[in-house]
Nucleic acid binder design. Structure first.
Lengths: 217, 217
DNA sequence: TTTCATATACGACAAATGCCGTATTGATAC
DNA sequence: GTATCAATACGGCATTTGTCGTATATGAAA
């Protein structure tokens, strides 16, 4: 028996790309697509013999979060995989609250998409590593969940800089960080100098505070 | 460059099995194993040139959670993957709080283990679908998180000390704090000296981190 | 009443930090 | 093919911090 899949996605090109990924696998069958939340729900009401829905978040009329909420309420057995370009905390959190069974980024390759579909049908959850990381971060800072959770402007720290900032936040000094990362203390200092410039701060504590506020740490 | 892997696992057979899984891949290199938390930490102190640690939870002497906490504090750059048979909410939650970068069940096959190792090294998080599901469930019921959990021993800081620590945490220096509290910088320094003694730390960042951990701030 | 904790304050010294240069290499972008 | 960025690395210098020791005043606890 083939797994029946429906797509909710406004962008025609992206929808086609996803359809194509699905077509690679014999056990997957694309049924229909809705170009926005309301249109999709309309089609679903007509034909709800669907196993998995691949849902975009940003859609006109009714967005993916609201649509997920509606569908999960009326057809709780249908699995929903969010498939989106947005991987910010807010969207992830809201999608989970709405009842999504997984959260994938659009760059996900066909094999991973296939695996994710199987995973959710077997009762698990699926997420790309970067999203998994964000859910862990939310779990690590429960106090932030209740609060407003306003998304601040992105601050572009490099991977190395975040690594160093993380160690700074633990109270390690330049020497120790240098040893851990197997680089020279001079380099650590230079990295920190650059971090300060980017965050517009002037000492370790301010840097860590600002980073936490922006959910970088 | 090969990825250097250490294992913390008390059961010899299971440790061997994991070693074997690792040996399938040319880009992975097994370095050493500790049969309990303390033994493992001993070896790690000798040789911390390790990229990823595969950590069991249930171990004598010092369990995987406590060991993870210790390692993450001293070597925050080293990635830790929990590899265990327990997939209950408490263990998952505690492992995440301790700083684990991923949570895999022992039945994980070599290919998935390999992918998980790559994922965490690339800065993501890795988890098996059933665990991912549990984290989503925890996120869906945040009210359970606020409940007691683990209350750490009380630490008796005076009112003045807390006041100073609070300002420290904002990134203010001695001079600024002195002005705010209308006392001499010398006094601020002495207070901070006393705070360090009480918290058994040696710099601002550690003091603030410890205070936050104990809900003083 | 005497001890203890707290808050106040200063001096000295070594270590760490913040801030300014400059410079090379490799990867990515245009 | 060149410009930009990330990561690496060093030197210098003023400031800040961490750790001593010492000291006085006050209120609470023993």
């Amino acid at each position: 028996m083939q797994i029946k899949i429906a797509i909710a996605e406004d962008n025609g090109f992206l929808a086609k790309a996803v359809e194509e990924k699905i077509s690679f696998f014999d056990d997957l069958k694309f049924k229909y697509r809705g170009a926005n939340g309301n249109e999709f729900i309309g089609k679903l009401e007509q034909d709800h013999n669907v196993d998995v829905i691949l849902m975009d978040i940003q859609m006109p009329e009714k967005d993916g979060i609201a649509t997920t909420e509606y569908v999960k309420n009326k057809y709780p057995h249908i699995k929903i995989l969010m498939l989106t370009v947005f991987d910010d905390d807010d969207n992830i959190f809201n999608a989970i609250q709405a009842g999504a069974d997984g959260y994938l980024l659009k760059e996900t390759n066909p094999v991973e998409l296939h695996k994710a579909i199987i995973d959710v049908l077997e009762g698990g959850a699926a997420m790309t590593p970067s999203v998994a990381l964000k859910t862990l971060n939310i779990l690590r800072h429960p106090e932030k969940m209740t609060s407003d959770r306003v998304q601040l402007e992105e601050i572009a720290l490099s991977k190395r800089e975040i690594e160093i900032l993380d160690q700074l936040s633990k109270g390690l000094n330049y020497q120790q960080i240098a040893e851990n990362l197997i680089i020279s203390p001079s380099t650590v200092r230079k990295h920190i100098e650059n971090i300060y410039k980017k965050l517009q701060v002037h000492n370790k504590m301010e840097a860590v505070q600002k980073a936490m506020k922006h959910n970088i740490l």
